[in-house]
């Protein structure tokens, strides 16, 4: 392969790797948004916590890497359930101003709690994978990157199937469309809320735990992740799953290619510009709800 194509392929591979993570995080956010009608500004904190808990389990408690990942997700989900019962339950009929301010408060709270618990320095989760890179015709990757891509892609598929095929998923989608009629046909909105929130948190935590192997997590990570997830959700259409998946991959690729062929300082601006364009020309996003 010529050098130009190799480099292009490398950028595309980088884009897919990051894009899968964006998609996974945005799926959770769009789920919480669709079911609960809450723009969860603390969503990125679940990613951060997933990474930190996994780091803690592997690095400080010496747990096996593959056991630590699901355990980290479980611990974050447990925390999410506590938050749902103590705080989010009260936000059901609350005005948007209240729900947003509370989630902003929660994101500051979780970030600073992490700072107190684990300190400010970024941490990478030690992985058992060999660090030697693999080369395919000059395009480089590592076993860890491939593992990340495989896990995030698999979780996206699993999430999609859960929402499409299971009774709970169908009930959730019904709640998306119309809360009152969902309640009328006997769907317990309370339980739907709890599941949606736990599910959203789980996806973000899983992304954090997996990516934490090569992108160090720090307490402040959550903020930028939340922002990126919001960008994806607005691009894809608020409350749309397909939109979150496609939007996530698109953003990952656009950032990788944009940074690859423009001054890298503007990388983060690509998504932001896209949001403003979408808002001007297609306010409902690229995909409709559900």
């Amino acid at each position: 392969m010529s050098a130009t194509i190799t480099i292009l392929a490398q950028h595309l591979l980088n884009g897919v790797l990051i894009g899968c993570a964006y998609a996974l995080i945005a799926m959770g956010l769009t789920m919480i948004f669709g079911v609960m009608n809450i723009a969860n500004f603390a969503h990125g904190e679940f990613y951060m916590l997933g990474g930190f808990v996994a780091f803690y389990l592997v690095s400080l408690m010496g747990l096996d890497y593959f056991a630590a990942l699901p355990l980290a997700v479980a611990i974050v989900v447990a925390l999410a359930i506590v938050l749902q019962h103590s705080i989010f339950r009260r936000l059901r009929e609350a005005p948007m101003m209240t729900t947003t301010l509370v989630t902003i408060g929660l994101s500051i709270l979780l970030e600073n709690a992490a700072l107190l618990l684990w300190g400010p320095q970024p941490q990478s989760i030690p992985t058992p994978f060999p660090t030697k890179p693999l080369s395919f015709f000059g395009v480089y990757t590592t076993p860890l990157y491939l593992f990340c891509m495989a896990v995030t892609a698999a979780l996206i598929v699993v999430g999609h199937v859960l929402i499409r095929r299971t009774r709970m998923g169908k009930a959730m989608r019904a709640t998306f469309q119309n809360k009152e009629s969902a309640a009328l046909v006997g769907i317990r909105i309370d339980r739907i809320y709890a599941y949606a929130f736990a599910f959203g948190a789980a996806l973000a935590a899983a992304a954090g735990a997996v990516l934490g192997g090569f992108i160090p997590v720090e307490p402040a990570t959550g903020g930028i992740i939340t922002l990126k997830a919001f960008v994806v959700v607005i691009l894809g259409g608020m409350g749309s799953f397909v939109g979150a998946i496609v939007g996530g991959l698109l953003l990952g690729l656009a950032e990788a290619l944009g940074a690859g062929y423009m001054p890298t300082g503007w990388k983060d601006a690509i998504g932001f510009f896209a949001v403003i364009l979408v808002l001007l020309f297609r306010p409902e996003g690229l995909f409709k709800r559900v």
Partner: peptide
């Protein structure tokens, strides 16, 4: 004139996005 036509969550999110964009301008 662009964002006040949207209501609700979109408005809030766009205002954050705008703020971040302005930061990137100041930085770059």
């Amino acid at each position: 004139s662009v964002i006040l036509r949207t209501r609700g969550h979109r408005f809030i999110i766009i205002t954050v996005v705008f703020a971040e964009l302005m930061k990137l301008v100041a930085t770059n």
